[in-house]
Design a protein around this nucleic acid. Structure first.
Lengths: 234, 234
DNA sequence: AATACAAATCGACATTTGTCAACAAAAAAC
DNA sequence: GTTTTTTGTTGACAAATGTCGATTTGTATT
């Protein structure tokens, strides 16, 4: 079980101000108010942070570590929608809907998570229009991202989907061509909607063709352009 | 080309009040203000209402007819995300993002469309917190819908996807077990992420098994429970 | 009614993808 | 350091799905 601990990552919401663009729109008084309702918990790699179907009372912000955001599909299969990085606000989907988590989140790494009570967050939305606007912007961006993901999952063949997955990790998550993966092969399969065996096969193929260099968890993208070409042609 | 016409469907935004829940949160003054920036256009079946990639200056509300909301994927293929009915507000995704349409909308039927200028809509969001909240609710609902769609597209086999498609049309769009389809077989394929030939095959199969009755465009869902079972098992 | 054209249908076949079993490698537990 | 367990890897095969061409049906036009 996760330990309930105060950490040094984020002593106070007023500090978060610097890390989270959305919070820069809040006054010091508002940040102080958010701070009173927040608490922080540490999770070990593999632990579940949010479980699909449970009730949603708090929003989540990671202050360290990485997590996977996934939905539980048919026959125990997971579909990883995206990877969660520090300073991203997670939980919008449940905010005004039915107060249920419609997805699960699990730590890929040792994580520190800050939880913000939904009520106080909603209050900010009501009283601070700029905050509301920025929040809506984030929701709509996620919408566009979803459409692209649907196209990838439903219209591209395995090579295209793996290319999309690698490009996503490289550009959006690790922001580097060379990185040490937090995902297992099964996770990569769940991210790209295929069987683990197929994911391994395509990764190996890319490796042999010199598009990537993959040794265990160490991934090095050698030819971004070709990955992008594969992504576009499907 | 679409004719620019005033119609009787929606003479005034103040009437829309009755049809669109979101608009019930607006004061008469606010509705009047929205009304000044709106205009109405008729589209014939097949015409494009929004084209992916063009700039988004207005939100759309159908006052009559049906339309398909789709993204243009790889190799000219379309992925139909959902069907648009009258009194639903469309265009959120572009509102605060980059003012581009990230999807296309085409009339499936003769349609009457009401266009609301984005600026005046944004003003309502800033000045009316309840309006903003309700709007956010809609965005988050769409998010949850997207996750379910991704699971359907990526984890279910053709039978499950066709079942999902039929259930969606029956429950959400036509709100009846028996209806006259506005979609072509190709559209059904684009909605469920498969080839036209495969869609036809599965539909025929369902027909022969007595799950549905399908004659041309006339669809009658005979066994909802079985469709739901097929949807769940994938 | 005759024609033209698009949509729907179907079977045969090719390709893609998943499954399974066996094994190797790595990590965790002892 | 050894054992156990998990994770990764591979090939052979089976199942799912797409493609193609031929044919039929339906719809619009003359």
């Amino acid at each position: 079980m996760a330990k309930f601990t105060k950490t040094d990552n984020c002593k106070n919401c007023i500090d978060c101000n610097k890390k989270i663009p959305l919070f820069q729109l809040l006054s010091k008084a508002e940040l102080t108010e958010l701070n009173t309702s927040r608490y922080e918990v540490k999770f070990k790699a593999g632990e579940t942070i949010f479980k699909q179907g449970t009730s949603a009372t708090h929003l989540l912000i990671l202050t360290s570590g990485l997590a996977k955001f996934y939905v539980e599909g048919v026959q125990e299969k997971q579909l990883i929608i995206r990877i969660i990085k520090p300073w991203e606000i997670v939980g919008q989907a449940s905010l005004y809907f039915d107060n249920r988590h419609h997805y699960s989140i699990a730590a890929l790494d040792d994580c520190t998570a800050c939880f913000i009570e939904i009520g106080s967050f909603k209050k900010m939305i009501r009283q601070n229009p700029s905050f509301a606007e920025d929040f809506i912007t984030q929701c709509t961006q996620k919408g566009v991202f979803s459409y692209e993901k649907m196209v990838s999952l439903s219209q591209k063949q395995m090579h295209g989907r793996i290319a999309d997955g690698i490009l996503y990790l490289s550009k959006k998550i690790y922001e580097s061509n060379k990185f040490s993966l937090h995902l297992s092969r099964q996770d990569i399969a769940d991210l790209t909607g295929m069987s683990k065996d197929s994911a391994i096969r395509i990764l190996k193929e890319f490796h042999h063709e010199g598009i990537i260099e993959l040794d265990g968890k160490n991934l090095n993208v050698l030819n971004v352009e070709q990955l992008e070409r594969i992504s576009e042609t499907g």
